[in-house]
């Protein structure tokens, strides 16, 4: 009863809502706008950030989904590379020399092929995790090597260039001033939010992540839930891969290795519970925005790229220790009153 009341009032105070992150994002925006008032809040700068943040955000969304089920998806970058490369290989024979325009139907088919690859890779992950019950961090570590290795072996490590012009517009055009990647990201984020909050699968994912044993005894089939989860994160990764190759006009088989840990940073910063059961799309969007704004702001101020890495690490630790301190304060009185707290779960992710 007391615990229930404490939780309710905690929720009312916004304990787990992304309010802090919203304030942080606004503060970052204001600080950099004040520091370089000419360049930072300009349309050009906002657009340039708009081209950068969707790929990071998509990877963050995928990791968030896997974390909600109590897992983690380390293979997203490899899936993005493999899916992007498949699309490029699909376009390549058509290009045949001079970069042609390509028709809309070709673009649609190419993107569909990439998404299918992403879904397939995700299904492999889901089967390994749900069917063979391999710990997610190990399964996706292995498939990350496997999918990434396939991408490298396919082209012999070479990048593929010469993509049709119409396809490149996915990554570079901004009709009515809004970059296409932002539109794609918004659609994907909305779809993820619907999946997580209003679909049966989303509820089952949360239940499996919050308490796997209880979920099992409630008759929830973890296999189908986990396959669904990792197919969804595979689709998000594939979309990120499409945006990456369209933006850079080339498909590189080992692009973005540093994104693997970055996507984990985003998810954790977004307040996703690595032990499962909780995660929000809003949190991921805000966390990604924060990091991208800081990166752009540092570049605008002429700081080195390396200082941004320091800032990124510092922010992660600062935000999390702040959250932990708040949670600790909240738990202290309960610990004295109630029964002994549950033993801490494994700290390995």
């Amino acid at each position: 009863m007391m615990a229930g009341f404490g939780r309710l009032s905690g929720w009312m105070r916004g304990e787990r809502s992304p309010r802090q992150l919203f304030i942080a994002a606004a503060a970052v925006f204001l600080v950099f706008s004040a520091a370089s008032s000419r360049t930072f809040p300009s349309v050009a700068n906002l657009q340039s950030m708009g081209f950068q943040f969707p790929e990071m955000g998509l990877l963050g969304l995928g990791v968030m989904l896997s974390m909600v089920t109590g897992g983690i998806d380390l293979s997203m970058v490899a899936i993005a590379d493999l899916a992007g490369l498949t699309a490029a290989e699909f376009f390549h024979p058509m290009a045949g020399g001079a970069p042609p325009g390509g028709s809309w139907s070709q673009v649609v088919v190419g993107v569909t092929v990439a998404l299918a690859v992403g879904a397939g890779c995700g299904a492999v992950n889901g089967l390994l995790i749900g069917g063979l019950r391999i710990p997610p961090i190990l399964a996706t570590l292995a498939t990350s090597e496997l999918f990434g290795g396939l991408a490298i072996a396919w082209t012999g490590g070479q990048a593929i260039v010469g993509l049709p012009q119409r396809f490149l517009e996915i990554g570079n055009a901004s009709p009515a001033g809004v970059p296409v990647p932002v539109v794609l990201f918004a659609v994907a984020a909305a779809a993820t939010a619907v999946l997580l909050n209003w679909r049966r699968l989303g509820l089952l994912m949360t239940l499996v992540g919050a308490n796997p044993v209880a979920a099992q005894f409630s008759g929830i089939r973890a296999l189908s839930v986990l396959v669904g989860t990792y197919v969804a994160s595979g689709l998000l990764a594939a979309l990120a891969g499409v945006i990456i190759i369209a933006r850079t006009a080339s498909a590189t088989p080992d692009y973005g290795q540093s994104y693997i840990l970055l996507s984990v940073v985003i998810a954790v910063l977004a307040g996703v519970d690595p032990n499962g059961g909780f995660g929000t799309v809003t949190g991921v969007v805000l966390a990604t925005l924060c990091l991208v704004m800081i990166q752009a702001g540092f570049i605008g101020l002429g700081f080195s790229q390396f200082l941004y890495e320091i800032a990124q690490g510092g922010i992660l630790i600062a935000v999390l220790s702040f959250q932990a301190a708040r949670q600790g304060r909240r738990q202290e009185p309960q610990r004295r009153r109630g029964p002994a707290p549950a033993p801490p779960r494994s700290e390995a992710v």
Partner: peptide, 15 residues
């Protein structure tokens, strides 16, 4: 900070 090692080292590696 009393945070998991993974999260702390994700931060310190960047720093």
């Amino acid at each position: 900070l009393r945070l998991p090692v993974l999260i702390v080292t994700l931060g310190t590696r960047g720093i």
